[in-house]
Amino acid sequence: MSGHPENLEAVDSNRRKLMVAAAAASLAGAGLNLVELAMAKTSSEAASKLVRWGLLIDTQKCGSGCDACVSACNAEHNLEDLGRPETDAQWIRKLDLVDQQTSHVDSLPMLCQHCEHPPCVDVCPTGASFRRDDGIVLVDKHTCIGCRYCMIACPYKARSFVHENLANQRSWSPRGKGIVEGCTFCTHRVDVGRTPACVEACHVEGGGAMTFGDMMNPDSEISLSLKSEPSRQIREDLKLNTGVRYQNV
C-alpha cells in the first residue's frame, strides 16, 4: 500500500506530460488552419483576431506635391469641401516635415494609425470608439454622442467632427451631423478582399508608396518588408503599437 500511491503519481505525471504535448501539437495544428482560414475571409465571415490589418508607407516614394490618397479618400467617402478648412472632415491629410537644419523635406500622409492600444477607445464614454478584432479602429456612429473626447485624446489628430447637415452620403459610408468620424481603413472594401481607396490610388496615380496587408501573416508583403527593412511608428514613445508604419522618416 505504501509504494502504490507513488507509482500512481509517477504514472499520472507522465500522462500529464503526454497530454500537454498532445494538446500543444493539436493547438499548433488548429492555429495553422485558422490562420489559413483567416486569410481567406469571405464577405460573410466576421473579422478575425488572427488578422491585423496594417499599412506601411515609404516616405521616399511619397511625393511632396502628390495628394492622390487624399482625393481618393474624399471621393470614396464623399468628404465634400464645404469651404471651411478648419472644420471640414479630413480622414487623411498630407504633411510635409521640414528638417530645420538641412531643410530636407519628408512628405507623408497622416491618418488614423489604427493603434493596438487606441487612446480614443480609452476615453470614449459610450463605447462608440472601438477596435475591431482585425485591428481596425472605428466609431460606432449609432452610439457616438459627439462629445469629441476622442479627438482630443488622439495624438495624430486623425478624427473629424461633422458640424452640419450633410447630403449625398455613399451607401457604404454613412455620415451625419453631430458625429465624430475618421479613417475606417475602408472596411467595406477590406471585408470583400480589396485594399483601401488611398492605397489603390497611391499605386495607380501616386508613387506606389503604400503597402497594405495583414501584419500577423509572416508571408504577407507588409510583414516581409517590416522584417527586412527599418520602419518607424510616429510617436513610438507612446507605445500605442500603431497599425500604420513609416519608412525613411
Binding site: A72, C73, A75, E76, H77, N78, K141, L166, N168, Q169, R170, S171, W172, P174, R175, G176, I179, H188, R189, V192, R194, A197, E200, A201, V204
Partner: peptide, 19 residues
C-alpha cells in the same frame, strides 16, 4: 446619415463595385 437613394457614384476608381 444613411443614403436615401441608391448609389449613383462608384466612389473612388471606376472599376470599384464593392458596396
Amino acid at each position: 446619415c444613411h443614403a436615401a437613394v441608391p448609389d449613383s457614384s462608384p466612389g473612388y476608381s471606376g472599376s470599384m463595385n464593392a458596396g
